[in-house]
Every structure is written in C-alpha cells, then in structure tokens.
Design a protein around this nucleic acid. Sequence first.
RNA 1: GGGUCGGUGGCGGAAUGGCAGACGCAGCGGACUUAAAAUCCGCCGGGUUGAAACCCGUGUGGGUUCGAAUCCCACCCGACCUACCA
Length: 845
Amino acid sequence: MSDRYRHAEIEPKWQAAWDEQGLYDTAEIPGKPKWYALTMLPYTSGDLHTGHWYAMTPSDAAARFRRMSGFNVFFPIGFDAFGLPAENAAIQNNVHPQEWTYDNVERMQGQLRRMGAMWAWDREAVSCDPEYYKWSQWFFLRLYEMGLAYREFAPVDWCPKCNTTLAREQVWGEDRHCERCNTPVIKKDLNQWKFRITNYTEELLDDLDKIDWPEPVKIMQTNWIGRSDGAQVTFLTEEGDPIEIFTTRPDTLWGATFMVLAPEHPLVDKITTAEQRGAVDDCVEQAARLDEIARTAEDKEKTGVFTGGYAINPVNGERIPVWVADYVLMGYGTGAIMAVPGHDERDFEFAKKHELPIVLVVQPPPDSEAGHVRSADDLESAWPGDGVMINSGPINGAAVGKEEGQSVKAAIAWLEENDKGTGAVNYRLRDWLISRQRMWGTPIPMIHCASCGTVPVPYADLPVRLPDDAQFKPTGESPLNYHEGFRYVKCPQCGGGAERETDTMDTFMCSSWYQYAYVDPYHKAGQPLAANDMPWDSGRGSYWLPVDQYTGGIEHATMHLLYTRFFTKALRDMGVVDFDEPMLRLFNQGIILGPDGERMSKSRGNVVNPDDYVDRYGADTVRGYLMFIGPWEHGGPWDPSAIEGVSRFLYRVWGVVLDAPSPNGSAASAAADDIRSLERKLHQTILKVSEDFGSFRFNTAIAAMMEFNNHLIRVKDAFTGPNAGDEQTAIWQESVRALLLMMAPVFPHISEELWQRLAAGAETASVHLQEWPQADPQKAKEDEITVVVQVNGRVRDKLMVAPNTASDDLETKALASNNVQRWTDGKQIRKVVVVPDKLVNIVIG
RNA sequence: GGGUCGGUGGCGGAAUGGCAGACGCAGCGGACUUAAAAUCCGCCGGGUUGAAACCCGUGUGGGUUCGAAUCCCACCCGACCUACCA
C-alpha cells in the first residue's frame, strides 16, 4: 500500500494547497494571545543563498511551534530593496534599478515559497515601493520638526568608489574601508543630513536592561555608545583663548606637562607662532592627506609638531607647550587633550620622543612592578595604575580611583569649587549620518530655496518620487543631480525657483521601521498624507506590536539593531508607538560555512547552492539538515554527505507511518512491557522536543525525534495493529500522530502529507492547525532506573531500582554488591555519598 | 592592545557537578542481489585482550569536590568584534 516518499510531488502540492486555503493569512483575533516572530528581511540581491535558509527556516520552525502552542502568530516577509547594487547593475546593463530590483524580488519570492515557510504574504512590503518610502519621507519630516533631523556642513567619511558618504558604522577595519566595496574611505567636507541619535544615548544604554537580547549584542552596543565618565576642563592659552579638554583622569591634571590639539582643531591656526608656521602647516596638510587611514595604523610612531604657543594649566598655573599631533582625533571629545606623560602610555611615548617634561603624580603601590619608582626619571613606561596622589596640591594623599572619596571625585570637586571645570560624560556615539549621494534610495523630502532656505516638502505632496527616466552614466554622480525635472522645483513657501535635495536616505532608514510596515503595508496607499496621520492602522498596530521574537545575525549589532531602537524611541516621542523597545527578544543565529569550514564565497569556490539540494532532497530535508548541524547560534560547516542522515530519517518515518502494524499480520500481540515502554518514550520525546523548540535547540529536538522513530521501527513487529479499542493500537496511533505533530514545524510538507493520509479520506484540518501534543510527566517516568555505584569516584557496578528508592536501601544494596566488595575488601569505608536516583559513591582509603 | 565566544572520537555534535561520546555522517563486517545502488542487521575513542576485567582519555598545567568535559586560577590555540576614545 505504501508508495515511496516523493518530495518533488508533495512539496509543490502542499505549498499550492496552503496558499489556496489561506493557511498563513494574517488575522487579528482579539483575545487570542499574539506572537510577532520576525526574521531579518533579505536584500533584493536576486538569489536566496544558503545563509538565508540557515537564518530563515529555523525562524519559521520556531514560529510554527508557537502557532501550534496556541498563539496567533505573525511571521511576515518583505524586501530591503534600495541600495547600490541595483544602481551598478543599471549602469552596466542599461536597465532601470527598479526593473532589476523587481526581477530579483520575483525570483526571490519563488525561492522563498520553496522553503515552505509560513510567510504572511498578505502583509508583504517592499521598501522601494513609493507607497512604502512615502512613509519613510513622512517620518523624516516629523523627525525634522522634532529637531531630530538636521543638516550640517562637516567632514564625513566618503567612499571614492561608491561615490557616497558612509555612516560611521559602515566604515570598517584598521584601514577604515568601505563596508560594501572595501575601498579605503577618505574625508570630505559636505552638507549632510543626520539624525540626532545622540539625544537618546542614555536611554539606549539603560533600556538594554529591559530587553531579552544576547549579552554579546548588548556589550557591543554598550561599547559602541562608549560612555566615559570624567571631567571637562578649560585651559587658557597665553592669549586668553579657551581650550576645552575632556579627560577621564582629572586627578592627573597636576601632571599635565603639555597639550595636544588635533590637526583640524579650530585654534591651531591662531596659536601657531610665525617660526612654527611652516612645520605646523605641513603637519596639518599631511594629516588631511593621509586622513585616518595611516593615522590609525597600529605601530605608527606618534608624530607631532610644536605650535610655538603655550597654555596655562588651570590647576597650578604652569606654562605648558601646545602641540599638534594626529593621534588626537577631532571626532572624539573636544579634539584637544591635556597630556600626562607620567600616567598615559601614548603621552609618555610622545614626551620621550620630543623630550617633553614628565611629572609623577601617582606614587605606584610598593608591591607593584613600579614600586621602586620615586620620580619620573625612574619610569620606563607610563604608570596608568593605582597608587596614591603626589605632587598634586589639594588632592595629595588621595587613593587613585573613581569611587567616592578617591582621587577622581576629589579632583572634580576641587575643579567645580574653583570654577576650573566640571564633571562630564563623553560618548563615542556620533549622530547618524543618513545622506547618500546615490539615486536608488528614498529621496530626502527637502527643498533648497535661495530666499526661504531649506524648506520641507508639504506632507500632502508626498511621496517625492524617484524619476522613471533617470539616465545612468558611469560618472559616479547621482543621476538625480542631472535630472532637471526632479531637481528644479518651485519653492513650496514662496513659489520661486528652488532646488530639490538630491541626497537619498541610507537604506538603514527603510529597515528601521519595516517591522511596523508589515503590520499594515502601504497604509493609505494613493491618499494624500498629513502630519497627524498614523503610518499604519492603529488597531492592527496595537494588536501585533512590538515584535516578540526577532532573529538575525550579529553583524548588525551596532548598525540596524541600534538604529531601529533609536527609531522606536523617536516614534514613541512623536506619539506613534507607546513602547520603548522594538524587539523584546533577539536570537542571533551563527553562520553557515562551506564544506571546508570557511565562509562561503565565490572566490573560495565553496558556495553551496540550496536550490540544488532542494531539487535533490526536498525542502523538508534541507530545512531539517540545517537545523540538525548543531546549535543554531554556533553555525557550522555544511557537510554534503551528512544531509543523507536527515533524508533517511524522513524515508523511515514515511515507512513506519504508512506500513503500520496490520491486523492481518501474523505477529504476536505486544507485551505489556512493550506498550508501556512505547508510551514512556512517547511522553519523554514530547517533553524533550517541546523544551528544545522553545529554546531554539533544534539539533537535539531532531535527534529526539529520530530516536523516537528508531524506537517505533524497533517495536513495530510486536504490535499487531489496528484493532479498534485495544490499548496497543491506541498507543501506537497516538505515537504516530504525535510524531507527525512534532515534526510539523521542521518538516511542514511531509508531516502534512502523512497527516492527511492517516486521516484516510476523512475531512481533516491541516496538521499546522493542530494543537501541540501534551506530555504527561507521569507517563514519561521510568519504572526502573539505573543507579551507578562508584568506589572512590570510579564506576564499579550499576543497580536497577525503582525510582525514589530510599538512600538507606541504596547504600545497603551498593555495599552488598559483589563487584563493589572486590574493591572494598579489606579497606576501611570512610564515607558513603548517596544521591537518590543517581548514584552511590563509596569512599575508601 | 581591549572585549566576547569557543577547543570533546576520523567528522558535525550530545552530556553544563553524578555512567563521556546521545543523534547523525564517514568507516568496517554481514544479510538481500547475477551484480551494483538502495534497504536491513551488527561493530565503531585509545591501550591491552579470544572475551571479560582493567588502565588511559574532553587543548595544557594546577586547584576546589566524595565526584569535574562541566566550577575556580594560570597558560596555549582558534573564531568573531573592537581599536591612538584622551
């Protein structure tokens, strides 16, 4: 009666059937608990690779498990559709980026369907759709009104190959290269739009405590925000110009023997004396030319030049020289530092090289490796560590430290009393630069008018559409710049001639709010917008939001995951959402590697194409194999032969379910022990699989299902099969049904097929609409358990006993064992450790 | 330089204070077959061994404990992140 398992027939069949039934359509059901499960949206690259399968199919399994566990689950999908590759393809192939993008979307939709995931296609959103980006523009205008979007003329990171500015987060590595094309970036002075993410710095730090996110992501965000506590101190030049500095060690102010300005510091020009002018100009010019590429090279010597000018140390009136050096960065703090060579390694190196004075203001503890140091002359390197303050006037004798009563607090108190400075906090986080000088992005809805200045596009005029007829030339310049119809407009305020902003938005803008777009995509399509609109249906929003479970790679820790948190806080302040955090839980999956254990890459030739394997084994097998490799968060290598194991498992399930024990079979009736052991194994498996699915441990869940299936195969012949009403038939059928239910999240097609075949013609709802099987912990309990008997920690015997056997009994039985007596004979028993239901350890000696 | 995670059979991994190696891959032996594939059965860390018993074994060295892959300290190796941050 059983035909073979043919994935190529059943998978497309069920995908079409589910589609037709609307099995995964979205419905807000008041009163039913909701679960918003989200996996990071794919970019429209045109191909769904193994990495997508690795990220998405376990997310789908987890979502399906929630659904079967009684939640109304929303698992949407969409596309991150703006970005540079579309534009490059446009230049190369002379097609509009839109055409390229939508071709890719279509292709990827097909690939996504082949996964057999429970995508809520009815809420799909594509970020390059004008009905999508009109809301990105709407958000921009609202942020502008709130003072959270602003334009600034400032030096920015510029990628000469991509011809665009980059956010700080998109500049990577020691050589500061472009995240996308690896070209080293350069600095450019440009007018740029930014979002004031720094308004939320403290909240972004504090609210990490409110969310269930992996610790590494929290640590990375914390480090990225980079809070430092210290003091802001004002030095004055001899001419009386103030130089603000930030320091985390205000207690070492008395040891400051010189100052260093960043080459870009505004005071450099003024403070430089005539005789130093040439040298300083050279230094500044060189720094500008090298930019930060060479400046950050690791072993680079600290180069710098004396300006000829002097400043007064405000704590002791000392006259100290002011230098210019490229190791001080304009982008951090105030762009100027006080140098304390005795207690800062960089300052020490610099002082040694340029023969600047060093003063010891911290006496290192006698028992430290610098215990012998009595004066600066004894120092072989800076002493940044503990000790006691010396040569420091009012704070002499204070213990070095940041705690109450220690040196740092004492110094700040003194500075504040004497009006020389204040306690201050400094952050590494910069505002988010969102301007991109590219065409394929959301146009920034702003207009530059000669008489009115920068004027926002009125809400009712949104969206500002990208032109369909833009010309793509390999000039590197945005086509929007030379598209006259786009660029030249009337000023909305005075009606005079004006120019449209031609910068577009960073694509991280689109992904900062896509989880909201999914709830009600393209809201108010075709209708004019107003400032007091809601960007989605508020009923739908309040039902689904925020996201309950987010899954994605850790590579977005300081980019997307920080931006979307900021965005949500800004949306809260504009009254659009009423919560503080967009995603309550986050899980980071690992990276799927090539068979050689290296990252998959075309150049390495180790790319595994999932489509090939889906053709050969079916989507269920590929899904199951990806989840079986190992813990999801670890990632790991794709082993082309190991997938066989999962494939065989499915064939065996097929066989054991359909070739069930037959009433005509000649086999003897199952013994009571067999029945009881199957029932026990069933409930143990349900317990294990439920627990593992709830915590994303798919590998061990699948192993448990395999074990259970192996058990079914082993005992099958002992069961005589369907005789309505008898116990063994009931347990067997319950086992098979439960196995299919447990398999459904990971293997949605085969479990549906077998579920429907078991129903044998009866009207049966999809396996995916069934309730998750419930385990009975009583039935899962063992009748007899093995208690290990150890002598001095080494296993010497095993006892088979009933659960909860009393400790005394266990001890007696253990001591009576022949195997044990062989080891204890003639020895003194010093102690017996009994752990009920586990072991007995007899300590002799 | 700083931070985080990790290191267990030939391989992916399981076990997170109590029988190390579940589950699977590969390998070996057998059944079926004219043969092969598929399938099924058995073996599968090392030493020793006919077998059992025993000994060794979770990167290295120490420690805590009746008992350590698991906890603590030091070190070695690898992956990822970050980096002149004042």
